[in-house]
């Protein structure tokens, strides 16, 4: 069993404003999805959601505001799952609710430091 990082990306600039009900429904979908992985014993680290502002540091101490300069879809959060193979990890990723709002999931094998 290997660890895979799922990176959730979405286009913040293009997100429709959600009503409280819609936001609640979305949260529930996330919870259900994560709980489903956890029940299979395949959740290594539930991960985190990231605030949608930030800074980017480049060589020679060039610091820019916001994560959105060159990347249209910015990082919204991540989780780590356990899976035997990329294919198995991808099957889990396919259920991610971010896909229903125009986002995507990057699946990457973790290399332990």
């Amino acid at each position: 069993m290997k660890d895979f990082l799922l990176v959730f990306r979405m286009d913040y600039s293009n997100m429709p404003v959600a009503t409280p009900e819609q936001a609640q429904a979305m949260t529930k979908r996330w919870m259900d999805w994560i709980a489903g992985i956890s029940t299979q014993g395949k959740l290594a680290d539930r991960g985190n959601r990231l605030e949608n502002t930030g800074k980017v540091i480049r060589p020679n101490n060039v610091i820019t505001n916001g994560p959105f300069t060159e990347i249209k879809e910015s990082l919204g959060g991540y989780s780590i799952i356990k899976a035997d193979s990329y294919d198995a990890a991808m099957e889990i990723a396919k259920g991610c609710p971010v896909l229903s709002v125009g986002g995507n999931v990057e699946v990457r094998e973790v290399s332990k430091l």
Binding site: D3, L5, D45, I80, Y86, M90, A93, K94, C96, L99, S100, G102, N104, V105, E106, V107, R108, E109, V110, S111, K112, L113
Partner: peptide, 23 residues
């Protein structure tokens, strides 16, 4: 707090194009 390196080989992105989930 924590962290990980990521392998470059075999990376994939799952996305949804025209209501179809593609890899």
């Amino acid at each position: 707090v924590g962290g990980n390196g990521l392998l470059f080989n075999g990376a994939n992105v799952v996305t949804r194009k025209k209501d179809k989930i593609t890899v």
